[in-house]
Every structure is written in structure tokens, then in C-alpha cells.
Design a protein around this nucleic acid. Structure first.
Length: 459
RNA sequence: GGCCGAGUGGCAGAGUGGCCAUGCAGCGGACUGCAAAUCCGCGUACGUCGGUUCGAUUCCGGCCUCGGCCUCCA
């Protein structure tokens, strides 16, 4: 069974065939670290994490790079506004981003390159573009000359005339062509800057990705991912500079773009202010439920974010964990995940189908009365869950872990349960029901089982 | 204006030319001291108007509605 991926470049699903099966390369545009990540920022991290998990099963080595942009005007603005050093901002929010993604079950990428660590490489790439006449110097800037690259616009499917006609931005007078974009720009003394052949300055937005790809992954990479809004201009520009710097070598073979998260059907965006921060959502919901919510829709589809979506996701996971708990509370993963789960993901990461397969496994477990079979299927469920990055906790932990913003005192719960057990033994059911009501008020749901009473956080 | 995407049952969300998605919620039954959980069962969903077809939610065309990109943005 082959892995099919939708390629933005060709607008269709294609069989994925890496250039070098011994070393598969993937790059995903990561965060600009100037504030908290919102849930929309988390979508590509989670989606490409699933792809990373899938690729690691198929290939011996997958080099996955997700950058951190730590040079940016918004970072500078945040530092000025908060009267702290730029470095304080980037260090703080890099840490928060990592913690938030970890809470969502996102594996660390193989490499997490920082733009500021690659300035010499960026300068070298700009010099190469100048030497090959794809760029020029003007008023302290270095600009990429778009007409020098004939295939420009192929990824986004727009031609130059359209872009100029639709241009809403004022064209800088020093540009030879309105579509030309900045590779290097001058810096003022109060802003971060590096010495360069063109004076003290800093890199433009697009060049850092191309340079870090060249440094860590190679001239041609297999997969490049990011949000849909990066197709133009960011990825289009990356292709232009990356291809031209390497004498026409293909820059990236498969381009993948995730759809947007919306709030009330409108794009979630920091500039619109309609955002939900991962950091905040984690106060009231487990990271795993947030991750599940992000994967309920196919990655290329829009997904409307709401509290209700998280609630539904949490309940669905409750059901799966309940099944695991009943079948084998300490189950280990099967050696290999169920074929049906892999087949779903192999079809351009069809996570909703994969989830349906997990539900089917849970159903089979609950229907079976054969303890050995139930254990075997529980191990399969666990292995299937691992492909999506879920169901890896022990059920006991899942059911008794409260979200960051809430507290439940386990000792109190246990003592109430003990008191209720005594009341039940004495057949004082009124007292037993009263104690259960008391537990419910604490946010705890209990279940009487053959082996005793278990409890879990309600919700 | 150019380019792109979407409209599926109470909600979320796949998918397919003819048959079941799946989950959450709801209803009925079994089980239970009562619950919870689980199991069994239930609900004639595919924006609209035409076309192709023996048959279309699925293919083609028009229309309506919504969203995205064209500017920083996941």
C-alpha cells in the first residue's frame, strides 16, 4: 500500500516517493516567537506530527525540521512595547510554544533551527543569488528579481499580471519590478542587525527558510508543509530563491498546506483578534482532547473551533479510554498498528477515517467476552492511537487528571467513595445516593463495577 | 476583479454512481438497589435548478450562500 499525499503544486493526490528512501526530508514553517500560539498555529504542528509518525514507520530516517523565526518586526515591536530585550521575548515564547506543543502530544522535530543561528548561511545564499543575477542591491536592500525566474507563480496558480493588478501594497520606488521581494534590508541602530556586504542589516522574511533548508536538509527536499496562507507569497518566494540559488534544482517535491481554523466561520487570526490561545484552552481541557479536536476534520478542510468541539472530543476519548480500562488497563501497544488505521492515514492523512477505525476497534472490544481477545484488541487500539498521538496514557491517569485550571482532591474523593460503600453494604441507599450527589458536585462521576467503585473527572 | 475552497442528519465530520460511515447528543429496551458503563434497537442527511444515467448526495452545467489568498498571518 502506497502513501498518497495531496500536492499543492500539482493539485492532486500523488503517490509519495522520496528522492532518497534512506533519508526522507521534511520542513514545516514553525512559529514566529513574539506571543502565545493560538490554536490555529497548533494545527500544522499537530497535522505534520501525524505525517511524521507515519513516515517514521515507512522509512529508516526521516529528517523533520521545523524552524523558529526569531527575527521579525513583530518581535521587535513586542520588545519595545514591553521594554525588554528582544532575546527575552524570543526565549520566553519559544519555551511556551514548546510546552504547549508537548501538551498536545506533538513530538519534537528532528531539528528546530533558529533564524538567528543562520545569518552567515543566509548571507551566503544571497551572495549566490546576486552572483547568478537573480538579485540586485538597491538603497541598502537586496531584492530578488522576480522576472528572472520564469516559473514564478506556479505554486499559487497566479500570473504576474494578476498580482500587479491586485497589488494593494505600495510599491517601493527602488524595486525594479513590483513583484520583487526583499532578501536583506537595512537595520537601524536600535534594531537587531548583522554586518553584511551591504551594510548592517537583517534578513527578509522568506530567505531564512530557504537557507535553513539548504543547511540542514539539502538542495531538494521531499515535503514542505505549512498553513494555506503561506502559499503566497511566502512559499512562492521560497521556491524562486531556492531554485535559482541552486541552478534550477527542484526546491521541494511535495507541497502540503493545512486549511484554516475559524471562529464562527471566520478565519482565526491575531490581527482580527478572534483567537483562542492553546495556553488558555489547556486550562480547561486536556491537551489530548484538543489534539483530537484538531484531527476530527481532514487537514485540508476548514475547521470551526468551539468549546463544544472540545467537549465532544473529550467525551469521545473518555469512551475509548473506558474501553481500554475495561479490557486491559495496562495494555501495551501491538507491534504494528491496525492496517485499517494505516490505510486511512496513507490516503492523504484521512484522520476522520482513522478515528472511525479506532471506534470500530473499541466496539469490537466491548462486544467480545473473550478476555484474551479483548486484550489483543486493546493492544491494537493503543497502537492505532499512537499513530494519531492519542491514547498513550494509562486510563487511570486519564480519568483522574484534572485540567490545569481545576482541582479535585483525590483523598476527599476516596473517602466519600469509602463512606458510600459502607452505606451500600448496610443497604442505606438514601445515604449512598446522597454521597454520590456530593461527589457529582465535586465534578466526579463514579461507576460501580464488579471489582469495586471507580471514579473519574466528569465532563 | 483574478485565483482557490466549501455547502451532508440536533452537533462534529468522512465518503461513495445503486448497500453501513464514524463519533457526540437524543429516544426505546436489556442490565443495575438506583445510577454509571456496556450491549441491542431507533431516527427516510446530502444548498438550489437543470442535464447525463436504468439509477446521482456522488458526474456535467447554471444559480444561491459562505470562507480563504492576492498585504504581516498557520
Amino acid at each position: 500500500m502506497s502513501l498518497f499525499l495531496y500536492n499543492t503544486l500539482t493539485r492532486r493526490k500523488e503517490v509519495f516517493t522520496p528522492a532518497d528512501p534512506a533519508r526522507v526530508t521534511m520542513y514545516v514553517c514553525g512559529p514566529t516567537v513574539y506571543s502565545y500560539a493560538h490554536i490555529g498555529n497548533a494545527r500544522p504542528a499537530v497535522v505534520f506530527d501525524v505525517l511524521y509518525r507515519l513516515l517514521r514507520r515507512r522509512y529508516p530516517q526521516v529528517v523533520y525540521a521545523r524552524n523558529v523565526t526569531d527575527i521579525d518586526d513583530k518581535i521587535n515591536a513586542a520588545a519595545t512595547a514591553q521594554k525588554v530585550a528582544i532575546n527575552d521575548i524570543t526565549t520566553k515564547f519559544t519555551g511556551i510554544y514548546r510546552a504547549d506543543m508537548a501538551a498536545l502530544g506533538v513530538l519534537p522535530p528532528t531539528i528546530e533551527p533558529f533564524a538567528t543561528d543562520h545569518v552567515p548561511q543566509i548571507i551566503a545564499m544571497i551572495q549566490a543569488l546576486l552572483a547568478k543575477n537573480h538579485a540586485y542591491v538597491a538603497e541598502g536592500h537586496v531584492l530578488f528579481h522576480v522576472p528572472s525566474y520564469a516559473a514564478y507563480g506556479r505554486l499559487s496558480g497566479r500570473d504576474r499580471d494578476d498580482m500587479i493588478a491586485g497589488a494593494r501594497v505600495e510599491v517601493a520606488p527602488y524595486k525594479k519590478d513590483p513583484a520583487d521581494f526583499v532578501l536583506w534590508k537595512p537595520s537601524t541602530p536600535d534594531l537587531p542587525g548583522w554586518d553584511s556586504p551591504w551594510g548592517r542589516g537583517r534578513p527578509g522574511w522568506h530567505i531564512e527558510c530557504s537557507s535553513m533548508i539548504e543547511t540542514h536538509l539539502g538542495n531538494t527536499i521531499d515535503i514542505h508543509g505549512g498553513g494555506h496562507d503561506l502559499i503566497f507569497p511566502h512559499h512562492e518566494n521560497e521556491i524562486a530563491q531556492g531554485t535559482c540559488a541552486h541552478d534550477g534544482a527542484a526546491y521541494c517535491r511535495v507541497w502540503m498546506h493545512n486549511g484554516f481554523l475559524t471562529m464562527d466561520r471566520e478565519k482565526m487570526s491575531k490581527s482580527l483578534g478572534n483567537i483562542a490561545l492553546v495556553h488558555d484552552i489547556l486550562q480547561s481541557a486536556p491537551g489530548e482532547a484538543i489534539r483530537w479536536a484538531l484531527l476530527t476534520a481532514h487537514y485540508r478542510q476548514p475547521l470551526d473551533w468551539s468549546d463544544d468541539l472540545v467537549t465532544q472530543s473529550k467525551r469521545t476519548l473518555d469512551g475509548l479510554y473506558r474501553t481500554l480500562e475495561a479490557a486491559d488497563p495496562t495494555a501495551d501497544r501491538s507491534a504494528s498498528p491496525p492496517e485499517a488505521v494505516i490505510a486511512a492515514l496513507d490516503d492523504d492523512l484521512n484522520t476522520p477515517i482513522a478515528m472511525a477505525e479506532l471506534a470500530g476497534l473499541a466496539k469490537a472490544i466491548n462486544q467480545s467476552s473473550d478476555a484474551a481477545e479483548r486484550k489483543r484488541l486493546a493492544a491494537d487500539l493503543k497502537a492505532g492511537g499512537e499513530m494519531l498521538g492519542v491514547l498513550q496514557q494509562s486510563p487511570a491517569v486519564w480519568f483522574t487528571t484534572v485540567s490545569a485550571g481545576k482541582t479535585i482532591d483525590a483523598a476527599t474523593v476516596e473517602s466519600l467513595i469509602a463512606a458510600r460503600a459502607a452505606a451500600r453494604k448496610a443497604r442505606d441507599f438514601a445515604e449512598a445516593d446522597r454521597l454520590r450527589q456530593q461527589l457529582a458536585e465535586l465534578g466526579v462521576t463514579i461507576e460501580d463495577r464488579a471489582g469495586g467503585t471507580t471514579w473519574r473527572v466528569a465532563g
